[in-house]
Design a protein around this nucleic acid. Structure first.
Lengths: 134, 134
DNA sequence: TACACCTCTTGCATATTGCAAGTACATTTG
DNA sequence: CAAATGTACTTGCAATATGCAAGAGGTGTA
């Protein structure tokens, strides 16, 4: 377990999910609601299996995600966001908005952000509610 | 230089500032507006000098910060945020709000967030304007 | 029973980080 | 003006994290 560097909220947040992969896992769970181990491996960034396993464990320990049984098979595991993970939706939206201004991003994300700009608060609230239902 | 892992906005953002230190440097610049190399070293997290130098260079290359001459001394260098860096204010605010919910954070940060909650959009707008003036 | 699938684990090479010391130049002090 | 101090880095090396390839163990399917 990594130690707390300071009591600064930014620092503590980075201690929790401030690596190159955690937010991508959270992204997958925000768009798909529930993912298997294999689903995460399919993401275009190509996370290594050992890193994925260690991140999933770490994020579970940090209370961001939780495991549940897959309804179809005992061999599969489903991961989903906890309330703490779902509460990162506003952070993710702001990152998306920032990235849109400075990078070239996919059309479907642009379309999503167009909706966001119409009513940011409403979009976020609805999105979080939807995730909580899953 | 690190390569682009995918065209996902989250991924591209993480490629830019997704490490354990960059956002802390940005935090310092958001609160102090201008910092010297030594100022960054004084932060409670205790960044190593080689990491600091490499991050400052990387962030300058990424267009998040810029150097300028210190008015008092040629030996000193001032760093400040660019427009691209200032545009991360909304992201930082959301991270703070998230962290407040799940961690114990300093009283002064709590007081700041109390102001944020009164009028988030106004607070962010004013904060960014203030940074642009510096 | 054999075979494929899925979630990890392991071993090892490479990259990044952290620590301690050192360098180069600017300013201050005696 | 010489020496000490301050400031921004650089360098060397050990510790840690990441990335890649292969494999292990439980499940489901023919």
């Amino acid at each position: 377990m990594k130690s707390r560097r300071s009591d600064c909220p930014i620092s503590q947040s980075l201690d929790n999910w401030g690596d190159k992969w955690s937010l991508l896992i959270i992204r997958d769970l925000m768009t798909a609601k529930q993912c298997t181990y294999g689903d995460f491996l399919k993401a275009p960034e190509g996370i290594a299996t050992n890193i994925l396993a260690s991140r999933l464990l770490q994020m579970e320990e940090n209370g961001l995600i939780e495991k549940l049984d897959h309804p179809d098979s005992k061999a599969k595991v489903l991961y989903r966001l906890t309330g703490k993970g779902i509460d990162l939706v506003p952070v993710m939206i702001e990152i998306n908005l920032w990235a849109e201004k400075y990078f070239i991003i996919p059309a479907d994300r642009k379309a999503m952000l167009k909706e966001v700009k119409k009513d940011k608060e409403g979009f976020i609230k609805a999105g979080m509610k939807e995730l909580r239902r899953a």
